[in-house]
Design a protein around this nucleic acid. Sequence first.
DNA 1: CTGAAAGCGCTTACAG
DNA 2: CTGAAAGCGCTTACAG
Lengths: 318, 318
Amino acid sequence: MLEPLASRARLHLGSSIGAPLRVVNRSPTVRIEVRQSVERAIAQLGYVPNRAARSLVTRRNDSIGVAIAEPTGRIFGDPFFAEVLRRIGAGFAARQLQLVLVMSQSPEEERRAERYLTRGHVDGAILFSLHGGDPLPEHLQSHGIPVVVGGEPPHGVRVSYVDSDNHGGAFAAVKHLIEQERTRNATITGPLDMPAGVTRRLAYHDALRAAGRTPDADLEESGGFTREGGQRSMEVLLQRCPDIDAAFAASDLMAAGALSALYAAGRRVPEDVAVVGFDDSIIALSTQPALSSVHQSMVVMGRELVRQSSGGPPTGKN
Amino acid sequence: MLEPLASRARLHLGSSIGAPLRVVNRSPTVRIEVRQSVERAIAQLGYVPNRAARSLVTRRNDSIGVAIAEPTGRIFGDPFFAEVLRRIGAGFAARQLQLVLVMSQSPEEERRAERYLTRGHVDGAILFSLHGGDPLPEHLQSHGIPVVVGGEPPHGVRVSYVDSDNHGGAFAAVKHLIEQERTRNATITGPLDMPAGVTRRLAYHDALRAAGRTPDADLEESGGFTREGGQRSMEVLLQRCPDIDAAFAASDLMAAGALSALYAAGRRVPEDVAVVGFDDSIIALSTQPALSSVHQSMVVMGRELVRQSSGGPPTGKN
DNA sequence: CTGAAAGCGCTTACAG
DNA sequence: CTGAAAGCGCTTACAG
């Protein structure tokens, strides 16, 4: 085990604790011979500064927590998370910060994750996939922790967030289907306790109405943002309305599930049924045929999440 | 912002710092009136103990790091990780520990993750998906951090690990195919810089030899433990050896990819080509038809990883 | 450029 | 059961 610098390096150096620590912290005001001698001793001892002692003074942890309150099955199935985490992980690394991911499978684990985030382990937090009136963002903020939410937070939650244009994107997707002269446009929605689910569904309604049509509840089914949910939803929709000729799925993962159901039912895509997804993720490319999808810029979303959670400078674009 | 207990609760309580801290730490030796009064003050102040100060004394962080040195794409695509992380997350929660996941996309991010793990943020570490001669386990151990590896570590790395019986499982799978009178048994291997890849391939060879057959390099293709790799491998295999009638894939994800390639080529499964996977994960159930697969007990693996990384007591079984 | 003091906010003995 | 001291290992001024 390692010991504090005070008690070890000092012995090797015959000097006070000041010099070694100045070397560790890359202070420019250290004589070169002293620096080299100290560096040799540090390497030899395998000395590592005590982070708790440092954090106690600096009040920084050099890490940012990312919390996703979803079952791992859903986190790990959806390329949206893989992509956005990849981006923000790289963004934090460039700022000398470590991204740490905390996941929660149950209310008990959610409480534990909240404790972790509020008890001084991280310098900031990014929250994904907030449902209903989750109090987590406000709890974290009341503890003075900078918080940013990925995606629009539930109504009434006062917190910064970064999101794509859910309404505009979904509206354009449905409009595109209508312009193909499709007459029976279904939708597979996300969870309706999440703004992304609600807003994309609303845009589907608005696009129908803009084309002079009336939304029909029979043409809607909730797919819960999962592949299995998308598949099941399409099965239900086909049974209820066999004349469906178009579908807007609120995520690529659900669209991929819907494609499976369509193939199993012997429908051709897009000849018999046109399908559009949302995310424009890797999944949209890997289906047969490649899926049309609403693009979300992970580059922009990742960049803004990093900036806002670590208190960085504003960027040129918004 | 919150202030230390010393300066705030004391004012409210007119007592020394001792009593409030005894309440926070659930010491049983506090008079009930004092406890209640302190609890009220704590709730009112929103007081939270300073973790750095506590850690400085206790030398504990109440969290365990899990490191997976793979692109997020691979981590998030494979249900093996979702399942094992779900298990160990629950296991740590039951021990009042928080699981934090650190991922690395590049050598630079790997170094940063190593810094994070060695610089006193965690009380232990679980490492997955080690390649080649990764020095991470030994580096962590030299810093006094308990380390356990999920899956057999690369040759020569001295570290505790938890693994399933790769050879036994793969051997049984291939034997099963041979007993179905399949004559052209292919395999899609994992990466050959990972013991799980090497050992499952070796078992495939051993099972063939045990049946009096000679391994044929034309019947092997590396799928890198990804869905796309499995699909590509099967395409290559079908082109090279159109008479294949069986395949053992070293993971379910690769098997699922292989199924796609088989369907695209017009082969029926299992009539024309029998396929067996490895993991017995959710994917094995969701393919059409359900995939045969070698079972790995995530319950046992998760339990043992938790136990060994947090220094728990031995369990009854091994 | 370098040394030594003060202080970060807890926990841990140890008196009362 | 409760109070007050010592100490964890750093960083941050502040003298020299």
